[in-house]
């Protein structure tokens, strides 16, 4: 094995204590699904079957317990008033985007986990410890992106680990290494954000006004107290077109208001009970 191989393949030395993530540039995605395959191979994830959805070229449909990278295919066939009759020349009329766990700064799945199976690693990523998870399933509805899922065969929650094992060995995550167009870039989050901002201005100069970032501070996706997303995206259409929420929120923000309100109601009713009993005495 080559020590610190990521220096050669991604130009980054992987060291504990730093934040790592993905910058997924959808304008560079060609929909080859090499990331999906590399992820499945490295992480020994089972195939999802050979069914065809018929809705687009996307037969994977979404992220699941056994699919940790998912390439969305969005056909631009409508201009809002029915089928488009004209399309821009020399342009693909498809949007393609490789979706993944966002490794949120304030991760709702981690905050929901009652066993501590979900934890933040020394690389600032969010991972499910399989030997601790007891399959309570609370992380599943907690995630605002619909990423984490229970596997009904082993009874544990699963999601992208940002190749925790590879990072420990100084290797770039499998999906980023396999990506032939560098649509998926792996690196330190701060540096990736800089690179992403640069790419957006580059695209704006080229006339792609629609390019923007999803998941960097003060942008769509990094809303509702989630902080930034360690795995963030460059998009050219509304977030919803890629099945991403425009303004996701941190689920744990709702614990305080709900619990205090409920306890106040219970206390009020208990006092009413005491008053009624005392009055009848």
């Amino acid at each position: 094995m080559i020590p610190d191989e990521a220096e050669l393949t991604a130009g980054v030395k992987i060291e504990p204590g730093k934040s790592y993530g993905f910058f997924t540039d959808t304008t560079r995605c060609i929909g080859c699904k090499a990331c999906e395959v590399a992820c499945k191979e490295w992480n020994l994830l089972p195939a999802d079957g050979l069914h065809l959805t018929g809705m687009s070229y996307d037969n994977t449909v979404g992220l699941s317990a056994s699919t940790w990278r998912h390439v969305a295919f969005i056909e631009k066939i409508s201009d809002g008033d029915g089928r488009a009759t004209e399309m821009a020349p020399y342009q693909s009329n498809w949007l393609m985007m490789s979706d993944v766990c966002k490794h949120c700064h304030n991760a709702p799945c981690l905050e929901a986990c009652p066993t501590g199976a979900l934890f933040r690693t020394e690389f600032d990523t969010v991972v499910v410890q399989q030997d601790i998870c007891n399959g309570c399933g609370y992380c599943v509805p907690a995630c605002p992106f619909g990423v984490v899922e229970l596997n009904m065969i082993d009874g544990k929650a699963h999601k992208c680990t940002l190749c925790y094992d590879r990072l420990k060995g100084g290797l770039e995550p499998a999906c980023a290494k396999a990506c032939p167009t560098d649509s998926i870039q792996f690196g330190e989050v701060g540096e990736l954000q800089q690179r992403a901002h640069q790419r957006v201005s580059e695209l704006h100069e080229l006339g792609v006004d629609s390019a923007y970032l999803y998941g960097v501070p003060n942008s769509p996706g990094a809303t509702g107290d989630l902080g930034h997303l360690n795995a963030f995206f460059l998009l050219t259409a509304e977030p919803e077109a890629y099945n991403l929420p425009a303004a996701p929120s941190r689920a744990s923000n709702r614990v305080g208001p709900s619990l205090s309100f409920g306890l106040a109601a219970a206390a009020g009713l208990a006092l009413a009970a005491a008053a009624l009993f005392g009055w009848q005495k």
Binding site: M55, S56, I74, E75, K76, I77, S78, D79, G80, A84, A88, Q91, N93, L95, V208, D209, S210, Y212, S219, P220, L235, T236, A237, E238, P239, A241, A246, A247
Partner: peptide
């Protein structure tokens, strides 16, 4: 109905 957006390349306004 299912409908994907046509890429009018309109700027996305959050």
């Amino acid at each position: 109905p299912s409908r994907a957006p046509y890429g009018r390349e309109a700027k996305y306004d959050p």
